[in-house]
Every structure is written in structure tokens, then in C-alpha cells.
């Protein structure tokens, strides 16, 4: 007999997955619009390339592996869009394409598709691109400017921007992460539709501020610079790769905050959000193990024993 057991209880059927993913797509619209307003045509191009290649890549890998096509669940489109919003507007289009393909094929497809990946695909793809072609990923453009103007991000030049600029997004940075009101709008929508709960975004942002402040940064500035808020709302909350219990989520959020602060202060890379969330994604199965409610753990062991015996 073959039991069908799924590790996370969240994704019940393609229909609900599709509904959740549509909610995320809707919540991303304000960020996308803000990105296009601030950075112009190149932002649209990147988003299109990224989404299309993610969907095409998912269709191809599922065809090759002989699985039922699941591109209708929209998860590939969400991955592609989130990846594009995480890139600098001056990234070449083929870099975005390579990232999308890496996300849907290596990080997700080979592990069995949505629900079986242990890293957030968009984040893993961003880390992949950052390590592969650092030059393309860290060439920033000034917003609302002619093409050729380069700018330093607030992380590289903390004194160069006011809090108001940091909040409204009139700063160089990734397409989707700069405009905080748009992200907050998306957060409100996701909370309103019960797509996510408030714990991870709030705890993660707060812990980041606290740990950065402890290491000599500004409390509010460190929360508003870089991709902290965008990642806290759209990527750290990925059902598949975050802990299930509230206690686990607090540990997870604290870990992310601490690692972000460490990387920003001591690390080679200017922004630690990507790596911090990936590292805590890796630790999630362990966190779950120690913070799951007792009853569940007990049942889980029973099931495993039954499986091993029969």
C-alpha cells in the first residue's frame, strides 16, 4: 500500500494553491507599479522575461520528468515576479531568465515541485545570481532619472538619504523593495485575505531593527533599507519553507534578524537578507522538530514506525 503523506499540511489541492498564489500576485501589483514608476521601462521588461521564463521552465521540467503539468497553480508566475522585483533595474534580461530557470528547475522541480522544495525558489535564485554575476546584480540605478545615472544604495551610503526618502522609495535599490507604502499595501491585502498571518513579517522586521541597532546601526533605518520589508512580507512567509508553529516562527524570525545584522556588519556582501532567509529555510525542519506541538510529534513518530514496519 502506498500512503500519500505530505510534509506541510498547508497545500490541500491545486484550486486552493491557485487561489493563494493569485492573492500573492494581486498583493505584488502595488510594488510592481511603484517599480515601473520609479525605474521605467527596464522594470517591465525584467518582470515579463522573469515571469515568462519561470512558467516556461516549469512546463518544460514537468514535461521532461513526465509529471502532470501544474503551471495553472500560478506558483511559477509568483516565483518569477518576486525574483524580478528583487533585482536591480539594470540587470540584463538574460540574467533574470537564468535565475528563473534555476529557481523552477533546480530548487523546485528536481525536488518534486511545489511543496517539496526546502528553500524559497526566488530567494535561492537571487543568491545564485548574486554569486554567479555579482557585477550585474549590484549595479544600481538612481530612481526617476535618465538611464545612465548610477547610485549608491542606502546600505553602502547610510548618511546619504533621509528617512522620508527611505520610506517612499526615492532611492536606488531593487525594483520592488524600495517603495515601502506599496509593500505595506500588499501586506494589508495579504492579511485581509488571510493568505498570511502577521507574525513573521512583524517579528522579522522588528528583530532585524533590534539586532542592527545592537551592532551600531540605526533602528528605523536598518528596517527601511535594503530588502528587509519586502522579504519579510513576500518571501519569509512562504508556507513551504517556514516553521509551522508560532513559537517556531519567532525563532525563525529572530534567526533571520541576527544573521542579517551579522552579514551587514561583518560580511562580504552588502545585503544579508537573501542569505539570512535561506539559512533559516535550511534550519526550518530542525526548528519544526523542536517547536511542534507534542501531540503532532507523537503521531508523526507513530506513522513513521508504521511505515518502517509495513
Amino acid at each position: 500500500m502506498k500512503l500519500h503523506l505530505s510534509p506541510a499540511p498547508h497545500v490541500h489541492s491545486p484550486q486552493t494553491t491557485r487561489a493563494l498564489m493569485l492573492n500573492v500576485l494581486v498583493a505584488l501589483i502595488p510594488c510592481a507599479i511603484a517599480g515601473v514608476y520609479l525605474f521605467g521601462f527596464s522594470a517591465i521588461l525584467l518582470m515579463l522575461v522573469s515571469v515568462l521564463s519561470a512558467v516556461a521552465g516549469e512546463a518544460i521540467i514537468q514535461k521532461i520528468l513526465g509529471q502532470k503539468s501544474r503551471i495553472n497553480d500560478m506558483s511559477a508566475a509568483v516565483t518569477g515576479l518576486i525574483l524580478a522585483l528583487n533585482l536591480s533595474p539594470r540587470t540584463p534580461w538574460w540574467v533574470a531568465m537564468a535565475g528563473s530557470l534555476f529557481a523552477v528547475i533546480v530548487v523546485k522541480g528536481l525536488f518534486g515541485g511545489l511543496g517539496d522544495n526546502f528553500l524559497n525558489p526566488a530567494l535561492a535564485a537571487r543568491a545564485f545570481l548574486l554569486v554567479c554575476w555579482p557585477r550585474y546584480l549590484t549595479t544600481w540605478a538612481a530612481p526617476l532619472a535618465a538611464d545612465a545615472v548610477a547610485g549608491a544604495t542606502p546600505l553602502a551610503n547610510p548618511a546619504g538619504y533621509t528617512l522620508g526618502q527611505l520610506f517612499l522609495g526615492n532611492i536606488p535599490g531593487s525594483i520592488g523593495e524600495v517603495c515601502k507604502p506599496a509593500i505595506l499595501l500588499g501586506l494589508v491585502y495579504l492579511l485581509f485575505t488571510k493568505t498570511i498571518t502577521w507574525q513573521i513579517p512583524v517579528y522579522m522586521t522588528a528583530f532585524t531593527g533590534v539586532f542592527c541597532a545592537l551592532m551600531g546601526g540605526g533602528f528605523v533605518e536598518s528596517m527601511l533599507s535594503g530588502g528587509v520589508l519586502f522579504a519579510a512580507v513576500f518571501m519569509a512567509t512562504d508556507y513551504v519553507t517556514c516553521p509551522m508553529s508560532t513559537k517556531g516562527q519567532i525563532v525563525y524570525a529572530a534567526g533571520i534578524g541576527l544573521i542579517i545584522a551579522l552579514i551587514r556588519k561583518f560580511g562580504l556582501y552588502p545585503e544579508g537578507v537573501t542569505f539570512a532567509i535561506l539559512l533559516m529555510n535550511v534550519a526550518t525542519p530542525i526548528i519544526d522538530r523542536f517547536t511542534k506541538r507534542r501531540v503532532y510529534g507523537y503521531e508523526d513518530n507513530k506513522k513513521k514506525e508504521a511505515k518502517a514496519n509495513g
Binding site: V106, G112, F118, L119, A127, N281
Partner: peptide, 26 residues
């Protein structure tokens, strides 16, 4: 996980280690 047949076992374990190593680059 529904890992495709040729990747079951060692290949997916090595790829997992690679993705963890990618996170450790941070």
C-alpha cells in the same frame, strides 16, 4: 517528496548539500 526517479537518493542529497552551501556563502 516526489523526487523524480533518476534523482532519488544520492543525486538529490548532493544537490541539497549544494543549496545549503549556497546559503552558507552568505
Amino acid at each position: 517528496a516526489k523526487v523524480p526517479e533518476p534523482f532519488k537518493g544520492m543525486p538529490i542529497a548532493v544537490i541539497s548539500a549544494g543549496l545549503i552551501a549556497l546559503a552558507f556563502i552568505g
